[in-house]
């Protein structure tokens, strides 16, 4: 009987012949009711809004143009993430270099690309052709040129978007990677050193694998952040989901409907990524 009263299985419990009255959490109940009311109001105001034509949402949700945009967004996310991680690792390793110039360069890189708003960076990269007419590979400050191409041929909006997203993302990620590298104790470096491992071996076999466990959860967040950041690419018409959705709305004047279409897809992809993140983190916790 006492066990039941502790677990509160039955509503009216008795102890030493008296009924036990549980604490009523009035504040909690009020807040819950309030939240439900707000939710209902918001949902109905969208669902029953005469200015939102839900059939348009249904019509365009799986339209080729939208799916094309979705594919563009996924590609942008994928490539930008890959390049950002590579840059981030390089910059993070440079940041902990013993050379002041090298670590200073890395610090400056992080400062610049973390500091510039993404939208500014994207417009900048997207319009590089305005002030660099051609891209040239050669030896600086000499006339030796290996090849040269007009910038407008190379800097398509898609490429510009990947560059902008990678640079911006790498600024943040470099700091995450650096934190991960620093989270591995000095003793691990010394043990590897004492066994005759070179610095590069130590980094590759000892430090990185251990840093990875610290890195993966925040990197998952960065991936989701990157997916959302691709929407900003629409300012340079980068061929992403939002660009497509807005493009269609420019023709049918159904802006809100097209935004809802885009929103649904963003939420679907983010849900998939979040589930993946959950399993990866659970896997890491097991080890």
């Amino acid at each position: 009987m006492s066990l039941r009263s502790i677990t509160g299985v039955n509503k009216t419990v008795h102890h030493e012949g008296m009924e036990i009255v549980p604490v009523r959490h009035w504040g909690r109940l009020t807040l819950a009711a309030f939240v439900v009311v707000i939710l209902v109001v918001v949902v109905t105001s969208f669902a029953t809004n005469p200015h939102i034509d839900w059939s348009v949402v249904g019509k365009y949700l799986f339209s080729p143009a939208i799916l094309n945009g979705l594919w563009g967004t996924l590609q942008l996310t994928f490539y930008s993430m890959i390049f950002a991680i590579i840059l981030a690792v390089v910059i993070a390793v440079m940041r902990i270099s013993e050379s002041r110039i090298v670590s200073g360069f890395a610090a400056g890189y992080v400062y610049i690309f973390r500091g510039i708003p993404l939208i500014v960076l994207l417009i900048f990269v997207g319009n590089l052709g305005l002030f660099f007419k051609e891209f040239t590979l050669g030896i600086p400050f000499t006339d030796i040129v290996f090849f040269s191409v007009p910038s407008k041929d190379v800097m398509t909006p898609f490429i510009a978007a990947i560059i902008g997203l990678s640079l911006a993302g790498s600024g943040y990620m470099a700091e995450i990677v650096r934190a991960g590298l620093l989270s591995v104790g000095r003793g691990q470096h010394e043990a590897a050193k004492a066994l005759g491992a070179t610095p590069s071996m130590t980094l590759r076999y000892i430090i990185m694998p251990q840093a990875l466990r610290v890195l993966i959860p925040p990197m998952g967040n960065e991936l989701i952040g990157m997916l959302k950041a691709t929407a900003i690419v629409s300012v340079i018409a980068g061929g992403d989901l939002l660009t497509m959705a807005l493009g269609i709305s420019g023709l049918n004047y159904r802006t809100i409907e097209m935004l809802i279409v885009a929103t649904i897809w963003y939420l679907i992809v983010i849900s998939v990524l979040s589930i993946g993140q959950y399993f990866v983190e659970r896997r890491l916790a097991e080890k």
């Binding site: 691990q188 010394e190 043990a191 050193k193 066994l195 005759g196 251990q210 080890k287």
Partner: peptide, 20 residues
């Protein structure tokens, strides 16, 4: 220097085993 260290083996107070 790493090559030179192979002559010596070291055991640390905090063990410093590779955790992974």
């Amino acid at each position: 220097a790493a090559q030179q260290r192979l002559v010596t083996g070291m055991v640390f107070q905090q063990f410093n085993l590779f955790q992974h």
